[in-house]
């Protein structure tokens, strides 16, 4: 691939999806776009670029963006954020939202659905504790292909063996030939929609808890700050943001502050000094000790 094609793809990906593709990661173009060209019966990346450039094939552009922004996911990935969600976050919100009995959760890069379904499993395990509660989980992703997979909830044997305890496999999945499908009760707990984090958040609504893990790493500083600002706008003062292990808000945004001892979890910054209601909750204090 010539430098002209690389520059075109680099600019297009930045403009359309915010993805920053450095030259060191140019190998990703080859490994991810050659299969796309093959699928579209095109003669390699060069022809893919020609089609994307002439603007007459929007589906080519979309396929390139989807291929470059789709990242692997697995159930209970990194485990710790899910422990925090189960042991600290949910006990806090079950107390703090007693009046409304509503909790809204957004997985901002839902990918093939493993993260939102992992959260749904944790919620389901609460049983009678959340009876009568209205807990919404919204999963969004820029890729419609990957969201189709999430909606179908159909996973390979390999995928259900990475991170998913076998007890959860038999409880929440049905076997279909060589695949495993998430049971309809669990699938119905999650709503999905296509969404580009560069677009306006106005139509999304408000969320108590936002999972935006392993996404910001692909954006430049300015885009990261803009996305964090828009996330903050759609959260209440006691909202919580979960980022990936290699991500932080420090040096990027002062709208969120890290929660001591809960790595990867940030709360909406407050003007008041002292620990927040979340940090003072007994379950949170116990988990963090």
């Amino acid at each position: 691939m010539g430098p002209g094609d690389f520059n075109f793809l680099q600019e297009m990906l930045k403009r359309e999806s915010g993805l920053v593709l450095t030259e060191e990661k140019s190998y990703l173009l080859e490994s991810r776009l050659i299969p796309v060209a093959r699928k579209l019966s095109l003669n390699g990346i060069e022809e893919l670029v020609v089609r994307a450039k002439n603007g007459t094939s929007p589906e080519v552009k979309k396929a390139i963006i989807e291929a470059m922004t789709t990242n692997e996911s697995f159930f209970f990935r990194d485990i710790k954020p899910f422990d925090i969600f189960r042991e600290a976050t949910l006990p806090y919100y079950l107390d703090a939202r007693q009046n409304t009995r509503k909790i809204k959760i957004w997985c901002a890069a839902a990918s093939s659905g493993q993260e939102p379904y992992s959260l749904a499993m944790i919620l389901n395990e609460l049983g009678p504790k959340i009876a009568g509660w209205n807990v919404d989980i919204l999963g969004t992703d820029i890729s419609t292909d990957i969201l189709d997979k999430a909606i179908n909830g159909l996973y390979t044997q390999f995928e259900v063996q990475r991170g998913l305890p076998v007890q959860n496999l038999v409880k929440y999945f049905d076997k279909e030939d060589e695949h495993w499908r998430v049971k309809s009760e669990l699938r119905s707990m999650v709503k999905y929609r296509e969404f580009n984090l560069l677009d306006s958040f106005a139509t999304l609504g408000q969320f108590d808890i936002v999972f935006c893990r392993n996404v910001l790493i692909y954006f430049d500083q300015e885009t990261k700050a803009q996305i964090l600002a828009r996330i903050a706008e759609c959260m209440p003062p006691d909202g919580l943001l979960f980022l990936g292990g290699a991500e932080t808000v420090l040096g990027i945004s002062n709208l969120f502050q890290p929660i001591p001892k809960l790595r990867g979890v940030y709360e909406v910054a407050s003007k008041e000094s002292g620990p927040s209601a979340f940090m003072e909750h007994p379950a949170v204090a116990a988990f963090a000790s």
């Binding site: 044997q157 063996q161 305890p165 076998v166 007890q167 496999l169 038999v170 076997k175």
Partner: peptide
């Protein structure tokens, strides 16, 4: 053995995890 019945039988017999 990768069907639900075998997995459940293994867990009931005292297995801690199951790889297919």
């Amino acid at each position: 053995e990768n069907d639900v019945n075998h997995i459940q039988e293994a867990m009931e017999a005292g297995a801690n995890e199951y790889i297919m």
